[in-house]
């Protein structure tokens, strides 16, 4: 995880100019609209028969992952900011998701069927 920070040195001089590429008001409103729409869809499908579908959980996970990513990229400016911040966040996030997944397997939350 840590070694990626070495790229940071290369980008030293880019840091000051990053500010100029920041998104402006219109982007923030659009992002808020998208987030609201996704949230509405999430809650809406909760009340439809789709709730009993096999695809319900994957659909919800995808939608919340999308919201998560959008907030991080646009509101937390990770899309525009210094690479180092991306590394500082995604490295731990991946380890966290890996730990969560590992624990879910270990406690039998995902049925793992090998060879039927």
């Amino acid at each position: 995880m840590a070694h990626d920070a070495s790229h940071a040195d290369a980008a030293d001089h880019g840091a000051e100019h990053a500010e100029e590429h920041h998104p402006q008001w219109s982007t923030y409103w659009k992002v808020a609209l998208i987030l609201s729409v996704i949230t509405v869809v999430e809650v809406w499908i909760y009340y439809t028969p789709f709730r009993d579908s096999k695809l319900f959980v994957p659909a919800l996970l995808t939608m919340s992952a999308a919201k998560f990513a959008i907030v991080v990229m646009f509101y937390m400016h990770l899309k525009y900011d210094h690479k180092l911040f991306r590394v500082l966040f995604t490295g731990p996030l991946l380890i966290a998701i890996g730990t969560l997944t590992g624990l879910m397997f270990l406690f039998g939350k995902f049925a793992l069927h090998l060879g039927g």
Partner: peptide
């Protein structure tokens, strides 16, 4: 600073990375 980045901002991002693990433990 060596990266041109502010100390506090670097520390806060590291802190946020750390918080990921805290909340993952609670959610798990």
């Amino acid at each position: 600073t060596s990266t041109g980045l502010n100390h506090r901002k670097v520390a806060v991002w590291a802190f946020i990375g750390s918080e990921c693990m805290l909340f993952v433990s609670l959610i798990s």
